[in-house]
Design a protein around this nucleic acid. Structure first.
Lengths: 203, 203
DNA sequence: CGCCTAGTATAACGGTCGTTATGGTGAAAC
DNA sequence: GTTTCACCATAACGACCGTTATACTAGGCG
């Protein structure tokens, strides 16, 4: 193997470039040529590793999904209080976004509006939704909620609200009331307070 | 003028077709040819009425903005209770969406992720955000809120959450807990309850 | 050495994009 | 009745899209 002067292999360079460009400029708006140029990869190599652009898009979403899940896992391991564990989804978003400079909003929300119905990347959007609902449901059970489904669904409403606000901010760029995610966490904490059997006050 | 056998003039036919296709299939994914074919309009006519596709997109967003504002006005005229007037934004969305068959999510949220930064349609996205924040702020003042900015921002969080959920549903298509907008209204009403000086219970 | 692998560079493919040009047509205005 | 205006249909434009083909090259390994 060559890997071109001790750099990373072509497949990872492609994923790096795709992750940067798809996220920054949108999936549809980013041409294959731009990804190839940024990754310093020839067209033949791309199509040897992925099933065309759609395959690259799916791999890009898969990578983001796994990374996001991993960050949430880490945050979750640091929390012991059941309520804090429920609210950890907001802390995970804060940490996830900080790692890439807090620019733009949720890649999955953007992809949900960009990808056509049959696209292979849709599987990872569904996986993201499933991860959110199932994990929140389980954490609500652990917190002793009477109706875990309602708790999970309510928290998801706050979560989605924060993500949509981030997407809106990109266009508005006006005066904002701080970080939408932090604000959503605060509102969710208040909403949760009266709704769980026994609550220790959370940070 | 011809207007082609008693049908509507070409400009309105173009806006009708664009409104249908842009909303249904996305702005970037819809070619000019598709709009022309649906509107039964020749290319020269389009470019005589609009400044290219970008101009048509901006006009499409402007039309949606004005219609949305008008629906909200109507709903607002029917409400007298200050709290109901604050929550009218959710009722307006329900009515607005019902008029077009409840398909897909918010066109402005989708456009916010699709349009590049300098696009002429961005003005209408900003106008939408401004309408929401300013009107909610004024309604919060009318309701006698101590901190109208906080009330308006909180309601906007519920509102954005409902829209993002709609966008997510298009991809997930799983079992849903009823209409996200109605659910957001219920949560917002509960959130509002303890936060305003005097509250009559609202429907 | 010779083979294989993973990669390179360049070029072309057919298709579609947004846009413009050309020439024609029917109805209203003068 | 001629002009004028709004619109039509068709075709072409250059640019870019995603994709494939061709030919070449540098290490790893037997």
């Amino acid at each position: 193997m060559r890997t071109t002067a001790a750099s990373r292999p072509a497949r990872e360079r492609l994923l790096d470039a795709a992750g940067e460009l798809f996220y920054e400029s949108g999936i549809a708006a980013t041409g294959v040529d731009a990804v190839l140029a940024r990754a310093h990869v020839s067209p033949a190599t791309l199509y040897a590793h992925f099933a065309g652009k759609d395959g690259l898009v799916a791999a890009y979403l898969e990578r983001r999904y796994r990374h996001w899940q991993q960050v949430w896992d880490e945050v979750l391991d640091e929390e012991s209080d059941p309520v804090d564990r429920l609210l950890s989804v907001f802390d995970a978003v804060v940490r996830y976004r900080r790692a890439e400079g807090n620019r733009r909003g949720c890649a999955f929300l953007a992809a949900a509006t960009e990808l056509p119905p049959g696209h292979p990347g849709q599987d990872w959007l569904a996986a993201d939704s499933r991860l959110l609902t199932e994990r929140l449901h389980r954490l609500a059970e652990d917190a002793g909620a009477d109706d875990p489904t309602e708790i999970a669904d309510g928290l998801l409403a706050f979560y989605d609200g924060a993500l949509a606000r981030l997407a809106r901010q990109a266009a508005t760029s006006g005066l904002d009331t701080g970080d939408p995610v932090t604000r959503a966490r605060r509102m969710a904490a208040g909403w949760l307070a009266g709704r769980l059997p026994r609550v220790r006050s959370s940070a």
